[in-house]
């Protein structure tokens, strides 16, 4: 595993831990989109169908279990935990996430590498992950009052995506037959969605002012 990939996985892990820290210790999910969290739970559930059938490494299996466990527990917290539930900004989190799921499913049925159930589900998860952040970005823009943990959560998620692109470039030049258009294009789209947020996040950090997004 190269350094970009490891750093990507670690920033992904940190983003999840930041979010769990916020939810578990502060008992607040203010500014967090339940729609995005449900989409991530669906992404991991459909991508890791191979978790018990194909063993890659202990690292791989453990990380998959962490991402599955954390995404479903975040959804559980936001839906079922009395205190956390109360802080959920339901009125602003109105993005219709079905509008993302259906096109991704159709696209996966049309564009995939192999027409098998597992492969189409895997491809669907790649497409869905690319756009799953949209409800979260819309919510940030609407509330315009972004606390530090929420800002850091989105920042680390974006960092994870950017590092994965460096990982793909590295692997392309160091491994034979490493060409994966579906993953690359989806990953690039996903990273570009963060560009705007990154711009405001970094300038607020540089000027040492509270992060706000323009309306």
């Amino acid at each position: 595993m190269n350094a970009f990939r490891l750093a990507g996985d670690m920033t992904h892990l940190i983003s999840v831990l930041v979010l769990l820290l916020k939810i578990h210790t502060i008992k607040s999910c203010a500014g967090i989109s339940l729609k995005t969290q449900e989409l991530y739970a669906l992404v991991f559930a459909t991508r890791y169908l191979d978790i018990f059938t194909d063993f890659i490494s202990l690292y791989n299996t453990v990380m998959k279990l962490i991402f599955l466990g954390s995404s479903f527990s975040i959804v559980w917290y936001m839906r079922r935990h009395k205190l956390v539930q109360r802080s959920y900004d339901k009125d602003h989190d109105t993005f219709r996430h079905q509008l993302l799921v259906l096109p991704c499913l159709i696209l996966a049925l049309l564009i995939h590498e192999q027409f098998t159930f597992k492969e189409v589900m895997w491809t669907f998860s790649i497409y869905l992950e690319a756009v799953a952040i949209l409800p979260q970005l819309v919510l940030l823009q609407r509330t315009r009052n972004i606390d530090n943990l929420t800002g850091q959560y989105v920042f680390f998620l974006g960092a994870y995506r950017s590092l994965y692109i460096l990982n793909w470039i590295y692997r392309y030049f160091t491994e034979p037959h490493y060409v994966h258009w579906i993953t690359w294009i989806s990953g690039l789209v996903q990273t570009l969605l963060y560009a705007d947020f990154f711009y405001y996040y970094i300038s607020s950090w540089k000027n040492n002012v509270k992060l706000t997004l323009p309306a």
């Binding site: 490494s57 994965y164 993953t183």
Partner: peptide
Amino acid sequence: DTDRNVKDEL
């Protein structure tokens, strides 16, 4: 299978 090596990613 080298063609499927992207599957070792998360």
